[in-house]
Nucleic acid binder design. Sequence first.
DNA 1: TATAGCGGCTAAAACGTTTCATCCATTCTC
DNA 2: GAGAATGGATGAAACGTTTTAGCCGCTATA
Lengths: 343, 343
Amino acid sequence: MATANIKEVARHAGVSLGTVSNVLNRPDTVAPATRQRVLDAITTLGYVRNDSARQLRAGHSRTVAIVVLDVANPFFTDVVRGAEQVIEASGAMLVVCNSGEDSARERRHLELLEEQRVRGVLITPVGHGPQPNLDKLIDRGIPVVLVDRGTGRANRCSVAVDDVLGGRLAMDHLLDQGHQRIAYLGGPVSIAQVADRHAGAAAALKERGGTAELRVAVTGSLTVAAGRRAAEELLALPARQRPTAVFCANDLLALGVLQELTARGLRVPADVAIVGYDDIEFADAAAVPLSSVRQPRDQLGRTAAELLLEEADSGDTHRHRHVVFQPELVVRRSSDQPRRTRR
Amino acid sequence: MATANIKEVARHAGVSLGTVSNVLNRPDTVAPATRQRVLDAITTLGYVRNDSARQLRAGHSRTVAIVVLDVANPFFTDVVRGAEQVIEASGAMLVVCNSGEDSARERRHLELLEEQRVRGVLITPVGHGPQPNLDKLIDRGIPVVLVDRGTGRANRCSVAVDDVLGGRLAMDHLLDQGHQRIAYLGGPVSIAQVADRHAGAAAALKERGGTAELRVAVTGSLTVAAGRRAAEELLALPARQRPTAVFCANDLLALGVLQELTARGLRVPADVAIVGYDDIEFADAAAVPLSSVRQPRDQLGRTAAELLLEEADSGDTHRHRHVVFQPELVVRRSSDQPRRTRR
DNA sequence: TATAGCGGCTAAAACGTTTCATCCATTCTC
DNA sequence: GAGAATGGATGAAACGTTTTAGCCGCTATA
């Protein structure tokens, strides 16, 4: 009933308190007979270690946190699963926190995590400006690894996919298909990925030097619902201004756009082509299979976790690293139809 | 740099240690001038509470855990978001643990959570047999709420959706459409939802008393990939035995089946009708919009969290409750085509 | 004027571990 | 056979809070 503690176990086994601790942490330093007596006491009393006390003594906990922009986004759930593998294999525990693309919630989570003296934090930050909260964690000696963000900051590791390149790939593809009026859909712009993918697309357009134009439509979030709303707005444009292709900052938006367009009777890709980003599992299963820029999602998580553990273990000798993966364009039906250039 | 503690704050502010604690926990009991001095000291020293010590003293933590079968399943992510709302509003923190439908991992997580003396646990257990791990938690006084599981166990609350009814709804619908050879796809059978939905389907079939038959195909997990594999197997059957409708234990399976069937040139619903379960956001965006049994996902999470907090707060006076929601069939194109009964 | 009450603060105990210096009894070394 | 080394166990300190009993000086009450 009442939770037994290490002292009761010691009394029950007729040994000292320190010996019980040794059985728990350095079993080989205690004689087999004694060890067995202690283990028996533990099971009969139903003793379970008290982690708070352990942590208090150790000065830090054995949990690692990952703070994501959206738990419901399949991109992040895959990243989480990748990180989970590595963290759990090391005997630690991964806790998932959801900032919901809201910097106030992000801050609150970081404060709580700091109070908990977590072993380290994997995070995809909401903004791309200075990050006082993160700097505070780092000052306190808590390792931080940026996920899906490749800032060259010197005081932390990062794992990212080249979003500018991803934007280029998508844009080049749409230009190759002969599109002249292209929309980029994404938001909020405070999210660095949204900005970078746009930058890549804009750069590709400029380098081509053609007559094609890129219109930007800003959304409030990166969700299916936001995609539907944005599509409605695009449809409200006069036909001559309406884009013939939409490049979306992620697949959820793209799926939303696809849903809304087909619901309104437009054909994809004949009337409007769509390219998404992330290549989540559902992209391939969509009404019209979705072209998308693929990222190595679980590897992102795994690598981030490895960097974190490395830093946490090696302490001062650690050198921060910035790993960048290359994205890859997967063309499927939603954009697979060349368009005759008019005018 | 080195983390300041409450003692240094006290020294810096020229007060006793207990006063600092009062400023933190009962600000109104300390004189405004003193309070301000302490607050100043806190900010200049960058003091952050040490949660381990606080927990050690309190005897339990302020975090609540939710253990789900699959973090990447949109059904669970929605449940998590619902629970999150309630838990965070109460000032606690929700940590998400992933059992991955694996009872060994589930056990490990529960052990860790017990060591952490969490405030409570929301869980969708892997098996449906006796649950020694959970009983142990409950013995220790940690409230447990079963999510999406309606066992009438007396020692815990539960929140569930009537899965037997859900199975019935799906089956009745397919029978109404005139299907004679129907497959139920789901697994592993140790998952109670899988078993209950099947039971409902079987019961509906029996009550109808017709000549229709229900074939069960067991999958290894409830994922898109498992659905694709299962579809392959169905396709390997001789045409005369091949089912004309598939009822899947969840939408991920259903999407997998849909992908594989269309990839192999079969038409849905003309050749094979499909009904899924959960009505996740992607069901509506699928290649062929998916009929599905809808559950109030975030409400499930919210209610579970509310029951948990109620139990955690009210202690002994708490009466366990079992809330059951009703599912609802949403018919979309994947099953919306009556089939002429042959023979 | 004595006393009770009160606001504001302090000092010390307690929470349950882990670790470190010690100690004891044995065995080994020469 | 004396001393050193070794294996095995012990006791106490320390980690940073929260809480409780109590103290002090002041005001209100009789």
